[in-house]
């Protein structure tokens, strides 16, 4: 394999990994606060369709990403009101959010179907990326760098700040946090809104550098893979990074299977299904480790009702 090809592969992996990484980072914070939001896929679709609409209307990528984050965050607040204020079942409500996101994006995206979305290219001057070696460093879309920075930010927030400590405490024992005097519901709202924003930005990745057109359900289950990834990473940001890039690798097989005869030993459908099969396999492997089941925040998915 030539250096050119290897570099192209690395860049493709990073691209495929980024939306999963962003969405999973958001969900990790949500779950650390004790909330399970299964609506990631739906929020990603909302983010994606808003990105398409804003980019095609204004041509401003940054504005598009911000709008995507806001819209997805807003949709996550519907989930928040239901599960946190009205203590509805989190699993069912998360599913409802995904159904809503799918329906909303299909409806809202209809006028934009088939229109090319201008790509969001590397923020660095193109001269830097002419040499293949330099391209490994400077050849990515800004969202790829953003995701990497967010890994560090989320880790730092959870482990090094007092606010992160409080957030973890709320997810660990909501009743104790309440009796010490922390606003459990308020903190969870913030976490859910952050998770929504991150899922929205994850959705932006699709039109901005993965599939530069609006297609219904273009996230094809990446939101669900992000959820699995959080479990796989045992709620640790840096392990999430490794996991996301592993899944990125699983996903590029489908692309290369189309052009490279070496993949023809198995049907192309197998390579397309590989990320999903890998997810199942990885979930099994993680469960074999004792840590896998106990690393979960103790209050994950349980509704909190304050007395008095």
């Amino acid at each position: 394999m030539s250096t050119e090809l290897i570099i192209a592969i690395i860049i493709t992996i990073a691209g495929a990994a980024t939306p999963i990484l962003l969405a999973a980072l958001g969900e990790l914070v949500v779950e650390k606060s004790g909330v399970l939001n299964l609506g990631v896929e739906g929020m990603m679709l909302i983010g994606a369709v808003i990105t398409v609409a804003v980019t095609l209307t204004t041509g401003n990528h940054l504005l598009a990403v911000v709008c995507a984050a806001l819209a997805a965050s807003l949709s996550s607040l519907i989930f928040g009101v239901l599960t946190l204020t009205l203590s509805a079942n989190q699993v069912a409500t998360g599913l409802a959010l995904t159904i809503l996101g799918t329906g909303f994006s299909a409806l809202f995206g209809q006028p934009y179907t088939g229109k090319d979305v201008p790509l969001l290219r590397s923020p660095f001057p193109p001269e830097l990326a002419t040499d293949p070696i330099w391209r490994v460093l400077f050849g990515y879309s800004p969202l790829v760098y953003f995701a990497l920075i967010m890994v560090v930010v989320v880790w730092w927030f959870l482990q090094k700040t007092r606010a992160g400590l409080i957030l973890r405490a709320v997810g660990e024992n909501d009743l104790s946090a309440h009796s010490i005097g922390y606003p459990v519901i308020g903190i969870r709202y913030l976490a859910v809104a952050f998770g929504g924003a991150m899922a929205g930005i994850a959705g932006s990745c699709f039109p901005l550098f993965l599939t530069p057109q609006w297609v219904e359900r273009l996230t094809t289950g990446r939101g669900w893979i992000a959820l699995a990834l959080v479990v796989f990473a045992a709620w640790r940001p840096f392990r999430l990074l490794a996991g996301a890039y592993f899944f990125g690798l699983m996903m590029i097989f489908e692309i290369y299977a189309k052009t490279n005869s070496a993949f023809r030993v198995l049907p192309s459908e197998f390579w397309a299904a590989l990320p999903y099969l890998a997810t199942v396999l990885v979930l099994v492997l993680i469960s074999l480790r004792r840590e896998g089941s106990t690393a979960a925040p103790a209050c994950l998915g349980k509704p909190f009702v304050a007395t008095g």
Binding site: R162, L165, E172, L175, A177
Partner: peptide, 24 residues
Amino acid sequence: VFQHFSLFEAMTVLENIALGMDSK
């Protein structure tokens, strides 16, 4: 001091005490 302790099992003693303080 609560009857049902208001502690966080998965955290250290130090973190638990820090959570009981009102400032960093």
